[in-house]
């Protein structure tokens, strides 16, 4: 559904994307992870026509994003990192303007439907500024879903939300997937990617350094983790390929050793941490 070929983009001397190649399948939730400045938002901005790349190609549903932006805009929905709702307008007015811009058919009925689906009916006439952060995020999602896009871009959708509201949002994102939409999600929250994504890509300095299902990534990097404090009082977390290897390390420590299964965060820390150390050296 989304195909990226050798995509590069720089901001001054900083290379935001460095020959990125990526394919995202239809109806999957794909998570793009990476530290700050890894190129996640730049990727989304290029795919949603806010930024032009220096080189490379990208296709959404077979349409060349750079050559036919108008056609691509008809099939995508975007939830940006920043809340870009019209704060002085009501929820309904925000949806109305967006729906008109996207030429949604039977707009008024569609707005009523989406308000029901997103449980926003009683907030219909509320001014956006008066809503809590959680509700504003929900309105952003409702707005992006209004034209029934084939592909959704969610750029850090749960940033700044408390855990309870974040989980509510996850339910909505899961619902989007069941409707057959493809979702590209960028996130800082590793547990979010683990809970939602079918596949995950880890970006580092504009390059894809890992790609696969959360399970595959954990298997590749190591399924077990041993955690302990060393002689200098430093906290050590070692990812091991097998249980036996983990036991061997644990046995050498007299106390305060934790042996557990690895998670996506361990994968992320190991892969990006190794690279950061290489750069520092």
């Amino acid at each position: 559904m989304i195909k990226i070929e050798n995509l590069s983009k720089s901001y001054g001397k900083v290379k935001a994307l460095d020959s990125l190649n990526l394919e995202i399948k239809k109806s999957e939730i794909f998570g793009l992870l990476g530290p700050n400045g890894a190129g996640k938002t730049t990727t989304v901005k290029i795919l949603t026509n806010l930024t032009k790349p220096e080189s490379g190609l990208c296709f959404i549903d077979g349409i060349n994003v750079l050559k036919h932006p108008q056609e691509v805009k008809r099939i995508i929905g975007v939830v940006p990192q920043e809340n870009n709702l019209e704060r002085e307008l009501t929820v309904y007015e925000n949806l109305l303007i967006y729906g008109m811009l996207h030429k949604v058919k039977s707009l008024k009925k569609r707005i009523e439907d989406i308000l029901s689906i997103m449980e926003l009916k009683d907030k219909k006439n509320s001014i956006v500024n008066t809503l809590s952060g959680g509700f504003q995020r929900r309105v952003l999602l409702a707005r992006a879903l209004l034209p029934e896009p084939k592909v959704m871009f969610l750029d850090e959708p749960s940033i700044g939300l408390d855990p309870h509201i974040r989980r509510e949002l996850w339910q909505i994102i899961r619902k989007i997937k069941t409707e057959g939409r493809t979702v590209l999600l960028t996130t800082h929250y590793i547990e979010e990617a683990e809970a939602l994504c079918d596949r995950v890509g880890i970006l580092f300095q504009g390059r894809l350094i890992a790609l696969g299902t959360p399970m595959e990534l954990k298997k590749n990097v190591g399924e077990y983790v041993v955690e302990f404090f060393n002689e200098n009082g430093e906290f050590i977390s070692e990812v091991c390929q097998s249980r036996e290897e983990a036991y061997e390390i644990a046995k050498k420590r007299s106390n305060g050793v934790i042996l557990r299964k690895s998670n996506l965060e361990d994968v992320f820390v190991k892969l990006t941490g190794e690279r950061i150390r290489k750069i520092e050296r």
Binding site: L50, N84, E86, K103
Partner: peptide, 14 residues
């Protein structure tokens, strides 16, 4: 600041 202009750029209008 509000990034609301980007909505127009991302909409299928010229």
């Amino acid at each position: 600041y509000f990034k609301t202009f980007q909505i127009y750029i991302q909409a299928p209008i010229n």
